[in-house]
Simulated assay, not measured.
Amino acid sequence: MKKTVFVIMPFVQANNRDQDELTKFFTDHIKDPIENSRDLDGKYVVNRSSDDFLILDNILLDLANADLVICDLSGVTANANVIFELGIRLSVSHKPVILIRENLDSNKSMFDVHGLHAFHYKMSSTKDLERFLIKKISEYDDDSSKYSSPVLKILNHEAAFWMQLPIRKASAFLGGISSAADANLRAFTKAINIFLRKNEVHDFLVDDPATVYKPIESLSENVKALNCLESFSYNISSIPSLDSYLSSVYLLGLIEESIERKFRTYAMHYSLHFNKGNSGFFWDRRFDEIHAYAKETLILMNLCRTTIKILRSKQGSEERNEYIKSFDGIINSSEFENM
């Protein structure tokens, strides 16, 4: 999936340029150079806003979700819509913003946007602007954590304040799923421990209920244990909050789309495979079912905990990228995709 650049700029008039000239400027000197740059390897798609003062839902979403925003402040005085949209972007995202402005003597001085530098370009030397934009985008592409919204930074917010409540709710919800998974593993561990002890399988030792799948795995070559486990009866406890998540999808819009999609897919697999009455349908042996339940429940628990860390970290930061890598490593250890 390509990354997105959203351009905020005047639409009708800026200094001596009319609507057609501004459209041509956007296409020839911003959109085409970025999308076709060898340095950027075709990773970006570039779109822009209009001059309608009605800031529609899709504009708000574009401002919030774009991987990078370019804001053109050109004009004798900066366009009101441009300033308004820039303010929205700075209040909702830590992802990069690049400011540019046509360099003319007729321009009036503007207020300083603390921490942000505006590149002044000349229409007689647009190649300089193109090189500047590609260079800045490449820098942010290598390390987007170099940028922080000056607004959110002053307010000491890792995420926009309008997102903090849903993030807290989603974190609490995921925490509830993780706690339920942990409790289920402890109950399951106790049950299987008692069962095997009664059947004199003495080489089953559990150090940590969370990793009970490991001693279960060690029994795979123990014929006595395998035969014994065929008669092990255990009613797997459901996780109601997991089923509730699947009907509500609390992470949408709060986290990277790929992470939300992977978590939702995993939750569907888990719910299907270990729903009461379903579990026995998916494995050839009782041992495989027992081992899978122990392992996948730990994976679910760890996915929830890692997703909470992603939610609470800064967008584009190295810390967040490490959490995302950890999430992918956890989900790749699941057996669901191999079944």
Rank of each mutant, 00 (worst) to 15 (best):
R48C: 06
L99K: 05
L165S: 12
L60G: 01
S237G: 08
N65C: 08
N79W: 11
C71T: 14
F173Y: 10
L116W: 08
A159M: 07
H117D: 12
S179I: 06
L251K: 04
F188Q: 04
V7F: 01
I239F: 01
K295S: 08
F53R: 11
N278E: 06
F188H: 02
H157C: 08
V45H: 11
S220C: 10
E257C: 03
I177R: 04
I88L: 06
S93F: 03
R197F: 13
N338W: 12
P166G: 06
S233I: 08
R264M: 06
S178Y: 01
H202K: 15
A118L: 02
R168L: 12
I259W: 07
N321D: 13
I59R: 08
E319A: 03
L60Q: 07
L311P: 01
L104E: 15
A14N: 09
P209L: 08
F204P: 00
E200H: 09
N103Y: 10
D203T: 10
E318F: 12
S50E: 14
S231W: 11
D52I: 09
I330A: 06
P150D: 02
D208G: 01
K153T: 12
A187W: 08
K314V: 09
S279F: 02
T27L: 11
N81G: 14
T211W: 03
P33F: 02
M1R: 11
S241H: 11
D328L: 05
S106P: 00
T307R: 01
L272Q: 12
D67Y: 09
F195Y: 15
L90F: 04
E85Q: 10
V92E: 15
K135L: 05
E35F: 00
D203G: 01
S279L: 01
I290F: 00
A267I: 02
R285Q: 08
N332W: 11
I290K: 00
F84D: 00
N193W: 13
